[in-house]
Design a protein around this nucleic acid. Structure first.
Length: 429
RNA sequence: GUGGGCGUAGUGUAGUGGUUAACACGUCAGGUUGUGGCCCUGAAGAUCGAGGGUUCGAUCCCCUCCGCUCACCCCA
């Protein structure tokens, strides 16, 4: 085999498309229902945007970006996530002059240089939404409702929501200080990998998987206990609204998890995550939170924002595991079956005319026996075979045969008549 | 970056230190004269991941590399 798709990438073949269509359509439908407008930003951005937005210290920026210098000498990076670019667009186009909050969604490929594994790829796809310009907890709940609704509308069940508040610059330093002190006290019982984390990203010790860490995390200081007065009020109000949402969505089961932290630097206050019950491996389906400080980091005025991103490959993985029924591929209306050169030409012409009538039509491969052509029509799952031979042409007719076992009929050799026959009451598909 | 598993036709698999590497599905063709699905027959399709070594001889044993995959890490 001369070439393979690059590591961590994959072809989405026609057979996979119904699944992807289902996800795309559901995403779009939910987004529209909440009045979010689609935004498409470039596949690549100035490297600096991500360094500033996502955070210099994050793994994403440090070792996972596809960066390169273009011919003009600028450093360019294939986007590893969506939020920074959307915020850039918000600032660049003066969207603060629009009614706030500005509601946006995207559905786009992202790129991260990682070792691929189940549910993790180098090119992957995210459906994400951002509500920018409104600090109210009302928006926090709106965003969570969307995420929940999206996952449920996909047909997934047994999912759970976890929420937390990780404060912001006004209270985080105090919290981190105490958290570090706590872990340093117990440093002897920490596995080696966890000790590295203590320096690099102390918050991440909380969601570590090692059993020792989990025990320690249980009794670790909680960010909720360190919230500033304002952030605490935001949190309480958020919880109240969330309970209101629960009256509408009785199946919305959420837990407050003080060990929930996020890996990107820009998150503040409310954070959340949706995952399947049989969580294994790359379990997070959808995650997000507030990023009230991000706009300033990007050089804009203080502007609150909140959003989420959902990994489409992971959602599809779960849709398949749960055997959620999805709509099938589009139906082919007609395959023309033709005998002889004159008939072949006539069939091709008729097929063109039938397409103008709005039908989907293909000609059976030329030069094959009638039997082979019929077999082709059958394998193509066509609804009808339209059979044209010398005899038919002489008489100005064609034979129209339903391939579901129905009775074959004769129709005039005219697109409009055939279209009428094909979409007549006889057809039930 | 670290560790485990695996690499045989398009796909899924079987197999053996020694003449033509097997099976299923798929593809194409045929089963007479212009009609699919089932059935039957046939054909095409594999340098047995690559390179090196052991051996009289390697798809099979050993080494290296490459690829895929799963997990860690990290995250959607």
């Amino acid at each position: 085999m001369p070439f393979n798709a690059p590591r961590g990438t994959s072809d989405i073949l026609p057979g996979d498309q119904p699944l992807w269509d289902h996800v795309h359509r559901t995403a779009e439908r939910v987004a529209r229902q909440f009045a979010y407008g689609r935004i498409d930003t470039p596949l690549f951005e100035t490297t600096e945007l991500f360094a500033r937005g996502v955070g210099d210290e994050t793994d994403i920026v440090q070792k996972e970006m596809y960066s390169f210098e273009d011919h003009g000498g600028d450093s360019i990076t294939l986007r590893p996530e969506g939020t920074a670019a959307v915020c850039r667009a918000y600032l660049e186009h003066g969207m603060s002059n629009l009614p706030q909050p500005v509601r946006l969604f995207y559905n786009a490929p992202m790129f991260r240089y990682e070792r691929p594994q189940a549910g993790r790829f180098r090119q992957f796809h995210q459906f994400g939404i951002e509500a920018i310009g409104d600090p109210s907890p009302q928006v926090d709940v709106e965003v969570i409702e969307m995420g929940w609704r999206f996952v449920r509308e996909l047909g997934l069940s047994g999912v759970t929501l976890r929420i937390n508040s990780i404060g912001d610059a006004s209270d985080r330093p105090r919290y981190v200080k105490d958290l570090k002190a706590y872990y340093e006290k117990h440093i002897d019982s920490l596995p080696k990998v966890a000790r590295d984390r203590l320096e690099r990203a102390p918050l991440r010790l909380l969601d570590a998987k090692e059993p020792e860490c989990q025990d320690l995390a249980h009794d670790a200081p909680k960010s909720l206990d360190y919230l500033s007065e304002e952030n605490a009020r935001h949190w309480e109000e958020f919880l109240g609204l969330l309970d209101g949402l629960k009256l509408v969505y009785p199946d919305l089961n959420y837990t407050v998890d003080h060990r929930l932290v996020r890996g990107l630097d820009y998150y503040t206050r409310t954070v959340f995550e949706i995952e399947p019950e049989d969580a294994r491996g790359q379990s997070t389906l959808l995650a997000g939170g507030r990023y009230d400080g991000l706009m300033e980091k990007l050089g804009g005025p203080p502007t609150p924002g909140i959003g989420f991103a959902a990994g489409l490959e992971r959602l599809i993985l779960n849709v398949q595991r749960q055997e959620v029924p999805v709509p099938g591929p589009p139906v082919l209306d007609i395959v023309t079956v033709h005998l002889g050169e004159a008939a072949q030409a006539r069939a091709a012409q008729l097929a063109a005319a039938l397409r103008l009538e709005g039908l989907s039509v293909v000609n059976a491969p030329a030069g094959r026996s009638m039997k082979a052509q019929m077999r082709y029509a059958n394998q193509a799952s066509a609804r009808f075979a339209l059979i044209i031979g010398e005899r038919e042409i002489e008489r100005g007719v064609a034979a129209l045969k339903p391939l579901d076992g129905g009775e074959q009929v004769e129709v005039p050799l005219e697109a409009s008549a055939i279209a009428a026959a094909v979409s007549g009451p006889a057809s039930t598909s």
